[in-house]
Design a protein around this nucleic acid. Sequence first.
DNA 1: CCGCTAATACTCGTAGCCGGATAATCGTCG
DNA 2: CGACGATTATCCGGCTACGAGTATTAGCGG
Lengths: 224, 224
Amino acid sequence: MMRRPTNPLALAVLVLLYERPMHPYEMASTLRERAKHESIKLNYGSLYTVVDALVRSDLIEAVETVREGRRPERTVYDITESGKVVMVDWLSDLIRLPAKEFTQFEAGLSLIGALHPDDAVRLLRARLVALDVEIRSNEGLLGMTEEYNLPRLFWIEGEYRGVLKRAERDWVAALIDDIESGALEGVDLWREFHATRAPMATPTRRQKPETPKKKARDAGKGAK
Amino acid sequence: MMRRPTNPLALAVLVLLYERPMHPYEMASTLRERAKHESIKLNYGSLYTVVDALVRSDLIEAVETVREGRRPERTVYDITESGKVVMVDWLSDLIRLPAKEFTQFEAGLSLIGALHPDDAVRLLRARLVALDVEIRSNEGLLGMTEEYNLPRLFWIEGEYRGVLKRAERDWVAALIDDIESGALEGVDLWREFHATRAPMATPTRRQKPETPKKKARDAGKGAK
DNA sequence: CCGCTAATACTCGTAGCCGGATAATCGTCG
DNA sequence: CGACGATTATCCGGCTACGAGTATTAGCGG
Protein backbone atom coordinates (compact mmCIF):
# COMPACT_ATOMS: atom_id res chain seq x y z
CA MET A 1 0.00 0.00 0.00
CA MET A 2 1.34 3.38 -0.95
CA ARG A 3 2.35 5.57 1.91
CA ARG A 4 0.21 8.61 2.35
CA PRO A 5 1.52 12.07 1.51
CA THR A 6 3.32 14.01 4.21
CA ASN A 7 2.06 17.46 3.35
CA PRO A 8 -0.81 18.34 5.74
CA LEU A 9 -2.33 20.30 2.89
CA ALA A 10 -3.26 16.93 1.40
CA LEU A 11 -5.21 16.13 4.55
CA ALA A 12 -7.02 19.45 4.31
CA VAL A 13 -7.96 18.54 0.74
CA LEU A 14 -9.36 15.22 1.91
CA VAL A 15 -11.41 16.90 4.62
CA LEU A 16 -12.77 19.49 2.20
CA LEU A 17 -13.75 16.86 -0.33
CA TYR A 18 -15.31 14.81 2.42
CA GLU A 19 -17.59 17.78 2.84
CA ARG A 20 -18.39 18.15 -0.84
CA PRO A 21 -16.76 17.90 -4.31
CA MET A 22 -14.69 20.91 -5.34
CA HIS A 23 -12.11 22.09 -7.78
CA PRO A 24 -8.66 23.03 -6.47
CA TYR A 25 -9.06 26.75 -6.62
CA GLU A 26 -12.24 26.51 -4.59
CA MET A 27 -10.39 24.45 -1.98
CA ALA A 28 -7.89 27.24 -1.61
CA SER A 29 -10.59 29.89 -1.31
CA THR A 30 -12.48 27.87 1.26
CA LEU A 31 -9.40 27.29 3.36
CA ARG A 32 -8.63 30.98 3.32
CA GLU A 33 -12.21 31.88 4.13
CA ARG A 34 -12.01 29.77 7.25
CA ALA A 35 -8.53 31.01 8.06
CA LYS A 36 -7.20 27.48 8.02
CA HIS A 37 -4.20 28.71 6.08
CA GLU A 38 -2.98 30.09 9.38
CA SER A 39 -2.50 26.52 10.51
CA ILE A 40 -1.80 24.72 7.23
CA LYS A 41 0.67 26.13 4.78
CA LEU A 42 -1.12 26.81 1.54
CA ASN A 43 0.25 27.85 -1.79
CA TYR A 44 -1.01 27.11 -5.23
CA GLY A 45 2.03 25.27 -6.43
CA SER A 46 1.78 22.77 -3.59
CA LEU A 47 -1.98 22.48 -3.89
CA TYR A 48 -1.92 21.16 -7.44
CA THR A 49 1.05 18.91 -6.70
CA VAL A 50 -0.80 17.50 -3.73
CA VAL A 51 -4.06 16.96 -5.63
CA ASP A 52 -2.15 15.05 -8.31
CA ALA A 53 -0.51 12.89 -5.69
CA LEU A 54 -3.87 12.12 -4.10
CA VAL A 55 -5.31 11.13 -7.46
CA ARG A 56 -2.36 8.83 -8.12
CA SER A 57 -2.98 7.18 -4.74
CA ASP A 58 -6.70 6.76 -5.50
CA LEU A 59 -7.62 8.78 -2.45
CA ILE A 60 -9.54 11.29 -4.54
CA GLU A 61 -10.80 11.22 -8.11
CA ALA A 62 -11.85 13.68 -10.78
CA VAL A 63 -15.62 13.67 -11.17
CA GLU A 64 -16.05 16.26 -13.92
CA THR A 65 -14.30 18.97 -15.81
CA VAL A 66 -16.23 22.10 -16.49
CA ARG A 67 -15.37 24.92 -18.80
CA GLU A 68 -16.99 28.31 -18.57
CA GLY A 69 -16.38 30.53 -21.52
CA ARG A 70 -12.79 30.30 -22.53
CA ARG A 71 -11.40 30.14 -19.00
CA PRO A 72 -9.13 27.30 -18.02
CA GLU A 73 -10.97 24.08 -17.39
CA ARG A 74 -11.92 23.44 -13.82
CA THR A 75 -11.51 19.89 -12.69
CA VAL A 76 -13.81 18.95 -9.85
CA TYR A 77 -12.65 16.22 -7.48
CA ASP A 78 -14.34 14.00 -4.96
CA ILE A 79 -12.98 11.83 -2.16
CA THR A 80 -12.98 8.05 -2.60
CA GLU A 81 -13.89 5.44 -0.05
CA SER A 82 -10.26 4.62 0.66
CA GLY A 83 -9.68 8.35 0.85
CA LYS A 84 -12.14 8.58 3.71
CA VAL A 85 -10.33 5.81 5.54
CA VAL A 86 -6.96 7.48 5.09
CA MET A 87 -8.41 10.81 6.14
CA VAL A 88 -9.65 9.51 9.48
CA ASP A 89 -6.48 7.53 9.97
CA TRP A 90 -4.16 10.39 9.24
CA LEU A 91 -6.09 12.97 11.21
CA SER A 92 -6.21 10.60 14.15
CA ASP A 93 -2.44 10.26 14.04
CA LEU A 94 -1.98 14.01 14.06
CA ILE A 95 -4.11 14.33 17.18
CA ARG A 96 -2.80 11.28 18.94
CA LEU A 97 0.96 11.38 18.33
CA PRO A 98 3.11 14.33 19.35
CA ALA A 99 5.43 14.84 16.40
CA LYS A 100 8.97 16.06 16.59
CA GLU A 101 8.85 19.64 15.34
CA PHE A 102 11.88 21.74 14.55
CA THR A 103 11.12 25.39 15.17
CA GLN A 104 13.26 28.30 14.08
CA PHE A 105 13.49 29.74 17.55
CA GLU A 106 14.61 26.50 19.13
CA ALA A 107 17.32 26.24 16.49
CA GLY A 108 18.37 29.79 17.28
CA LEU A 109 18.42 29.12 21.01
CA SER A 110 20.58 26.06 20.56
CA LEU A 111 23.21 28.21 18.84
CA ILE A 112 22.78 31.38 20.85
CA GLY A 113 26.22 30.98 22.35
CA ALA A 114 27.67 32.32 19.11
CA LEU A 115 26.19 35.74 19.88
CA HIS A 116 27.51 38.07 22.49
CA PRO A 117 25.34 37.81 25.62
CA ASP A 118 24.54 41.51 25.59
CA ASP A 119 23.38 41.29 22.00
CA ALA A 120 21.38 38.21 22.84
CA VAL A 121 19.55 40.09 25.56
CA ARG A 122 18.81 42.96 23.20
CA LEU A 123 17.39 40.58 20.61
CA LEU A 124 15.34 38.65 23.16
CA ARG A 125 13.81 41.91 24.32
CA ALA A 126 12.82 42.69 20.76
CA ARG A 127 11.26 39.25 20.50
CA LEU A 128 9.29 39.87 23.64
CA VAL A 129 7.70 42.94 22.12
CA ALA A 130 6.92 41.10 18.90
CA LEU A 131 5.36 38.26 20.86
CA ASP A 132 3.13 40.67 22.73
CA VAL A 133 1.94 42.07 19.44
CA GLU A 134 1.19 38.61 18.11
CA ILE A 135 -0.66 37.65 21.26
CA ARG A 136 -2.81 40.74 21.05
CA SER A 137 -3.53 40.15 17.40
CA ASN A 138 -4.47 36.57 18.09
CA GLU A 139 -6.80 37.67 20.84
CA GLY A 140 -8.31 40.09 18.38
CA LEU A 141 -9.15 37.26 16.03
CA LEU A 142 -10.66 35.38 18.92
CA GLY A 143 -12.85 38.37 19.60
CA MET A 144 -13.96 38.37 16.00
CA THR A 145 -15.25 34.84 16.22
CA GLU A 146 -17.43 35.99 19.07
CA GLU A 147 -18.69 38.92 17.08
CA TYR A 148 -19.71 36.68 14.23
CA ASN A 149 -21.21 34.26 16.70
CA LEU A 150 -18.89 31.46 15.74
CA PRO A 151 -18.51 28.95 18.54
CA ARG A 152 -14.98 28.72 19.91
CA LEU A 153 -14.69 25.23 18.57
CA PHE A 154 -14.10 26.68 15.11
CA TRP A 155 -11.09 28.60 16.31
CA ILE A 156 -9.64 26.05 18.63
CA GLU A 157 -6.35 25.99 16.74
CA GLY A 158 -6.04 29.70 17.37
CA GLU A 159 -6.64 29.20 21.05
CA TYR A 160 -3.91 26.59 21.11
CA ARG A 161 -1.50 28.88 19.33
CA GLY A 162 -2.30 31.63 21.83
CA VAL A 163 -1.51 29.38 24.78
CA LEU A 164 1.84 28.42 23.31
CA LYS A 165 2.69 32.01 22.46
CA ARG A 166 1.97 33.11 25.99
CA ALA A 167 4.08 30.32 27.43
CA GLU A 168 6.92 31.35 25.16
CA ARG A 169 6.52 34.97 26.10
CA ASP A 170 6.78 34.29 29.80
CA TRP A 171 9.75 32.01 29.36
CA VAL A 172 11.62 34.55 27.23
CA ALA A 173 10.96 37.24 29.81
CA ALA A 174 12.37 35.00 32.52
CA LEU A 175 15.37 34.12 30.38
CA ILE A 176 16.23 37.77 29.87
CA ASP A 177 16.22 38.30 33.61
CA ASP A 178 18.34 35.23 34.22
CA ILE A 179 20.99 36.27 31.72
CA GLU A 180 21.17 39.79 33.05
CA SER A 181 21.27 38.82 36.69
CA GLY A 182 23.72 36.05 35.95
CA ALA A 183 21.32 33.59 37.55
CA LEU A 184 21.68 31.41 34.49
CA GLU A 185 24.52 29.02 35.07
CA GLY A 186 27.15 29.40 32.38
CA VAL A 187 26.73 33.06 31.57
CA ASP A 188 30.16 33.73 33.02
CA LEU A 189 31.72 31.20 30.62
CA TRP A 190 29.70 32.71 27.81
CA ARG A 191 31.05 36.20 28.49
CA GLU A 192 34.54 34.86 28.86
CA PHE A 193 34.40 33.11 25.53
CA HIS A 194 33.39 36.28 23.74
CA ALA A 195 35.95 38.36 25.56
CA THR A 196 38.85 36.18 24.39
CA ARG A 197 37.46 35.92 20.91
CA ALA A 198 38.47 38.45 18.28
CA PRO A 199 35.85 41.20 18.43
CA MET A 200 33.13 40.59 15.96
CA ALA A 201 30.69 42.65 14.05
CA THR A 202 27.58 43.03 16.14
CA PRO A 203 24.25 42.49 14.47
CA THR A 204 22.85 45.32 12.45
CA ARG A 205 21.72 47.99 14.83
CA ARG A 206 18.04 48.65 14.75
CA GLN A 207 17.87 50.94 17.73
CA LYS A 208 17.83 54.23 15.93
CA PRO A 209 14.93 54.70 13.53
CA GLU A 210 16.28 53.92 10.10
CA THR A 211 15.92 56.27 7.24
CA PRO A 212 12.31 56.05 6.10
CA LYS A 213 13.04 54.07 2.98
CA LYS A 214 11.81 50.52 2.88
CA LYS A 215 12.60 47.96 5.46
CA ALA A 216 16.18 47.56 6.48
CA ARG A 217 15.90 43.92 5.68
CA ASP A 218 18.99 43.33 3.59
CA ALA A 219 20.98 45.69 5.70
CA GLY A 220 23.86 43.55 6.83
CA LYS A 221 24.27 41.43 3.81
CA GLY A 222 26.77 42.76 1.34
CA ALA A 223 30.35 41.62 1.75
CA LYS A 224 31.45 40.36 -1.62
CA MET B 1 22.72 38.78 -4.68
CA MET B 2 22.51 35.32 -3.26
CA ARG B 3 19.98 35.02 -0.54
CA ARG B 4 21.11 32.99 2.39
CA PRO B 5 20.01 29.38 2.70
CA THR B 6 16.80 28.62 4.56
CA ASN B 7 17.86 25.38 6.18
CA PRO B 8 18.90 26.06 9.80
CA LEU B 9 21.43 23.29 9.39
CA ALA B 10 23.43 25.76 7.31
CA LEU B 11 23.51 28.13 10.26
CA ALA B 12 24.72 25.35 12.49
CA VAL B 13 27.53 24.71 10.01
CA LEU B 14 28.51 28.37 10.14
CA VAL B 15 28.57 28.34 13.92
CA LEU B 16 30.66 25.18 14.06
CA LEU B 17 33.18 26.55 11.58
CA TYR B 18 33.28 29.78 13.50
CA GLU B 19 34.55 27.67 16.35
CA ARG B 20 37.12 25.81 14.28
CA PRO B 21 37.65 24.30 10.80
CA MET B 22 36.07 20.91 10.26
CA HIS B 23 35.05 18.42 7.64
CA PRO B 24 31.36 17.65 7.17
CA TYR B 25 31.28 14.35 8.92
CA GLU B 26 32.91 15.90 11.96
CA MET B 27 30.23 18.60 11.94
CA ALA B 28 27.59 15.93 12.12
CA SER B 29 29.34 14.10 14.95
CA THR B 30 29.82 17.29 16.91
CA LEU B 31 26.19 18.28 16.52
CA ARG B 32 25.08 14.88 17.74
CA GLU B 33 27.55 14.94 20.61
CA ARG B 34 26.01 18.17 21.82
CA ALA B 35 22.50 16.91 21.15
CA LYS B 36 21.86 19.84 18.84
CA HIS B 37 20.21 17.47 16.40
CA GLU B 38 17.27 17.53 18.76
CA SER B 39 16.74 21.14 17.75
CA ILE B 40 18.12 21.20 14.21
CA LYS B 41 17.18 18.52 11.75
CA LEU B 42 20.30 16.75 10.65
CA ASN B 43 20.81 14.17 7.99
CA TYR B 44 23.75 13.46 5.78
CA GLY B 45 22.06 14.20 2.51
CA SER B 46 21.10 17.68 3.63
CA LEU B 47 24.44 18.32 5.27
CA TYR B 48 26.42 17.92 2.09
CA THR B 49 23.85 19.82 0.05
CA VAL B 50 24.03 22.65 2.54
CA VAL B 51 27.82 22.74 2.65
CA ASP B 52 27.92 22.98 -1.14
CA ALA B 53 25.42 25.82 -1.07
CA LEU B 54 27.49 27.69 1.51
CA VAL B 55 30.62 27.29 -0.61
CA ARG B 56 28.79 28.63 -3.65
CA SER B 57 27.74 31.67 -1.63
CA ASP B 58 31.30 32.24 -0.39
CA LEU B 59 30.19 31.91 3.21
CA ILE B 60 32.59 29.04 3.82
CA GLU B 61 35.57 27.70 1.88
CA ALA B 62 37.54 24.49 1.60
CA VAL B 63 40.91 24.85 3.29
CA GLU B 64 42.37 21.40 2.70
CA THR B 65 41.56 17.90 1.64
CA VAL B 66 43.12 15.10 3.59
CA ARG B 67 43.25 11.45 2.74
CA GLU B 68 44.02 8.78 5.27
CA GLY B 69 44.72 5.39 3.85
CA ARG B 70 42.24 4.57 1.18
CA ARG B 71 39.25 6.18 2.90
CA PRO B 72 37.27 8.81 1.08
CA GLU B 73 38.92 12.19 1.04
CA ARG B 74 37.91 14.51 3.82
CA THR B 75 37.46 18.10 2.81
CA VAL B 76 38.00 20.51 5.67
CA TYR B 77 36.11 23.81 5.54
CA ASP B 78 36.48 27.14 7.27
CA ILE B 79 34.13 30.08 7.61
CA THR B 80 34.85 33.24 5.59
CA GLU B 81 34.59 36.82 6.76
CA SER B 82 31.28 37.33 4.98
CA GLY B 83 30.21 34.02 6.47
CA LYS B 84 30.72 35.46 9.94
CA VAL B 85 28.58 38.45 9.07
CA VAL B 86 25.79 36.29 7.71
CA MET B 87 26.01 34.01 10.72
CA VAL B 88 25.46 36.81 13.23
CA ASP B 89 22.79 38.34 11.07
CA TRP B 90 20.88 35.15 10.56
CA LEU B 91 21.14 33.98 14.14
CA SER B 92 19.99 37.40 15.30
CA ASP B 93 16.93 37.15 13.11
CA LEU B 94 16.06 33.75 14.54
CA ILE B 95 16.19 35.13 18.06
CA ARG B 96 14.56 38.44 17.32
CA LEU B 97 11.71 37.56 14.96
CA PRO B 98 8.99 35.09 15.90
CA ALA B 99 8.52 33.04 12.76
CA LYS B 100 5.28 31.55 11.55
CA GLU B 101 5.58 27.86 12.28
CA PHE B 102 3.18 25.22 11.02
CA THR B 103 2.99 22.35 13.46
CA GLN B 104 1.38 19.02 12.80
CA PHE B 105 -0.83 19.23 15.85
CA GLU B 106 -2.15 22.65 15.00
CA ALA B 107 -3.02 21.37 11.53
CA GLY B 108 -4.80 18.43 13.11
CA LEU B 109 -6.70 20.66 15.52
CA SER B 110 -7.86 22.91 12.72
CA LEU B 111 -9.47 19.90 11.02
CA ILE B 112 -10.59 18.03 14.12
CA GLY B 113 -14.24 18.62 13.24
CA ALA B 114 -13.96 15.82 10.71
CA LEU B 115 -13.59 13.31 13.55
CA HIS B 116 -16.37 12.24 15.83
CA PRO B 117 -16.09 14.11 19.15
CA ASP B 118 -15.90 10.90 21.14
CA ASP B 119 -13.04 9.68 18.99
CA ALA B 120 -11.35 13.04 19.33
CA VAL B 121 -11.48 12.78 23.10
CA ARG B 122 -10.04 9.30 23.01
CA LEU B 123 -7.16 10.44 20.80
CA LEU B 124 -6.49 13.52 22.90
CA ARG B 125 -6.24 11.33 25.98
CA ALA B 126 -3.65 9.20 24.24
CA ARG B 127 -1.75 12.34 23.35
CA LEU B 128 -1.79 13.41 26.96
CA VAL B 129 -0.06 10.21 28.00
CA ALA B 130 2.52 10.55 25.25
CA LEU B 131 3.18 14.14 26.25
CA ASP B 132 3.78 13.11 29.84
CA VAL B 133 6.31 10.57 28.67
CA GLU B 134 8.10 13.17 26.60
CA ILE B 135 8.13 15.64 29.45
CA ARG B 136 9.65 13.07 31.75
CA SER B 137 12.24 12.11 29.21
CA ASN B 138 13.15 15.73 28.65
CA GLU B 139 13.54 16.26 32.37
CA GLY B 140 15.78 13.23 32.40
CA LEU B 141 18.09 14.87 29.89
CA LEU B 142 18.10 17.99 31.97
CA GLY B 143 19.20 15.92 34.92
CA MET B 144 22.02 14.50 32.85
CA THR B 145 23.46 17.91 32.12
CA GLU B 146 23.65 18.45 35.86
CA GLU B 147 25.38 15.14 36.34
CA TYR B 148 28.00 16.01 33.76
CA ASN B 149 28.29 19.45 35.25
CA LEU B 150 27.17 21.19 32.10
CA PRO B 151 25.82 24.65 32.86
CA ARG B 152 22.16 25.23 32.09
CA LEU B 153 23.12 27.54 29.27
CA PHE B 154 24.12 24.58 27.12
CA TRP B 155 20.68 23.09 27.34
CA ILE B 156 18.37 26.10 27.24
CA GLU B 157 16.79 24.85 24.05
CA GLY B 158 15.73 21.77 25.96
CA GLU B 159 14.37 23.89 28.75
CA TYR B 160 12.38 25.88 26.23
CA ARG B 161 10.99 22.74 24.66
CA GLY B 162 10.00 21.49 28.08
CA VAL B 163 8.09 24.65 28.86
CA LEU B 164 6.16 24.44 25.60
CA LYS B 165 5.42 20.77 26.11
CA ARG B 166 4.05 21.42 29.55
CA ALA B 167 1.88 24.25 28.28
CA GLU B 168 0.54 21.97 25.57
CA ARG B 169 -0.08 19.21 28.05
CA ASP B 170 -2.13 21.40 30.34
CA TRP B 171 -4.11 22.85 27.48
CA VAL B 172 -4.91 19.43 26.05
CA ALA B 173 -6.05 18.23 29.47
CA ALA B 174 -8.35 21.23 29.76
CA LEU B 175 -9.64 20.70 26.23
CA ILE B 176 -10.60 17.12 27.00
CA ASP B 177 -12.58 18.26 30.01
CA ASP B 178 -14.27 21.02 28.04
CA ILE B 179 -15.35 18.68 25.27
CA GLU B 180 -16.67 16.09 27.67
CA SER B 181 -18.49 18.53 29.89
CA GLY B 182 -19.80 20.41 26.88
CA ALA B 183 -18.26 23.58 28.29
CA LEU B 184 -16.64 24.27 24.95
CA GLU B 185 -19.03 26.26 22.84
CA GLY B 186 -19.88 24.37 19.68
CA VAL B 187 -19.60 20.82 20.92
CA ASP B 188 -23.34 20.41 20.63
CA LEU B 189 -23.20 21.41 16.96
CA TRP B 190 -20.26 19.11 16.47
CA ARG B 191 -22.17 16.13 17.83
CA GLU B 192 -25.19 17.08 15.82
CA PHE B 193 -23.19 17.24 12.61
CA HIS B 194 -21.82 13.80 13.11
CA ALA B 195 -25.15 12.38 14.18
CA THR B 196 -26.82 13.49 10.97
CA ARG B 197 -23.70 12.78 8.88
CA ALA B 198 -23.88 16.38 7.83
CA PRO B 199 -20.80 17.99 6.35
CA MET B 200 -18.07 19.10 8.62
CA ALA B 201 -18.58 22.09 10.80
CA THR B 202 -18.51 25.17 8.68
CA PRO B 203 -19.19 28.84 9.39
CA THR B 204 -21.40 29.24 6.32
CA ARG B 205 -24.19 26.75 6.76
CA ARG B 206 -25.20 25.13 3.57
CA GLN B 207 -28.89 24.61 3.36
CA LYS B 208 -29.31 21.22 1.86
CA PRO B 209 -26.73 18.57 2.48
CA GLU B 210 -28.01 15.74 0.32
CA THR B 211 -29.64 13.33 2.75
CA PRO B 212 -27.33 10.39 2.71
CA LYS B 213 -28.66 7.06 1.55
CA LYS B 214 -26.63 4.47 3.28
CA LYS B 215 -26.24 2.03 0.44
CA ALA B 216 -26.00 4.55 -2.34
CA ARG B 217 -22.25 4.26 -2.60
CA ASP B 218 -20.59 2.86 -5.69
CA ALA B 219 -22.77 3.07 -8.83
CA GLY B 220 -19.85 4.54 -10.69
CA LYS B 221 -16.83 4.10 -8.58
CA GLY B 222 -14.71 1.13 -9.33
CA ALA B 223 -12.76 0.41 -6.21
CA LYS B 224 -9.56 0.40 -8.12
C1' DC C 1 43.53 -13.94 13.65
C1' DC C 2 38.93 -14.38 11.96
C1' DG C 3 34.60 -12.49 11.51
C1' DC C 4 31.27 -9.13 12.94
C1' DT C 5 29.50 -4.84 14.24
C1' DA C 6 30.20 0.01 14.63
C1' DA C 7 32.08 4.03 13.00
C1' DT C 8 33.91 6.82 9.21
C1' DA C 9 32.98 9.54 5.14
C1' DC C 10 30.59 10.68 1.52
C1' DT C 11 27.34 10.12 -3.07
C1' DC C 12 23.20 9.84 -5.61
C1' DG C 13 18.40 9.56 -7.35
C1' DT C 14 14.02 10.81 -6.50
C1' DA C 15 10.10 13.04 -4.66
C1' DG C 16 8.01 17.09 -3.46
C1' DC C 17 7.83 21.99 -2.46
C1' DC C 18 7.49 26.61 -4.01
C1' DG C 19 7.59 31.05 -6.46
C1' DG C 20 6.26 32.93 -10.29
C1' DA C 21 4.39 32.65 -15.16
C1' DT C 22 0.31 32.38 -17.91
C1' DA C 23 -4.13 33.58 -19.39
C1' DA C 24 -8.82 34.65 -19.44
C1' DT C 25 -12.69 37.28 -17.33
C1' DC C 26 -14.93 40.58 -14.17
C1' DG C 27 -15.61 44.95 -11.87
C1' DT C 28 -15.28 49.78 -11.74
C1' DC C 29 -14.18 54.47 -12.10
C1' DG C 30 -13.71 58.35 -14.46
C1' DC D 1 -16.16 52.71 -23.10
C1' DG D 2 -11.81 51.42 -22.29
C1' DA D 3 -7.90 50.95 -19.19
C1' DC D 4 -6.36 48.66 -15.24
C1' DG D 5 -6.27 46.06 -11.38
C1' DA D 6 -8.43 42.13 -9.03
C1' DT D 7 -10.10 37.51 -9.38
C1' DT D 8 -10.40 32.93 -11.27
C1' DA D 9 -7.73 28.83 -12.43
C1' DT D 10 -3.83 26.14 -13.55
C1' DC D 11 0.94 24.81 -14.94
C1' DC D 12 5.94 24.51 -14.86
C1' DG D 13 10.96 24.63 -13.91
C1' DG D 14 14.34 24.93 -10.47
C1' DC D 15 15.92 23.77 -6.34
C1' DT D 16 16.06 21.42 -1.81
C1' DA D 17 15.63 17.79 1.19
C1' DC D 18 16.09 13.23 2.38
C1' DG D 19 16.78 8.37 2.90
C1' DA D 20 19.18 4.74 1.14
C1' DG D 21 23.34 3.11 -0.75
C1' DT D 22 28.57 2.46 -1.04
C1' DA D 23 33.00 1.60 0.51
C1' DT D 24 36.64 1.51 3.88
C1' DT D 25 38.66 0.91 8.42
C1' DA D 26 38.72 0.29 13.60
C1' DG D 27 37.52 -2.27 17.53
C1' DC D 28 36.73 -6.46 19.84
C1' DG D 29 35.19 -10.87 21.33
C1' DG D 30 36.19 -15.62 20.97
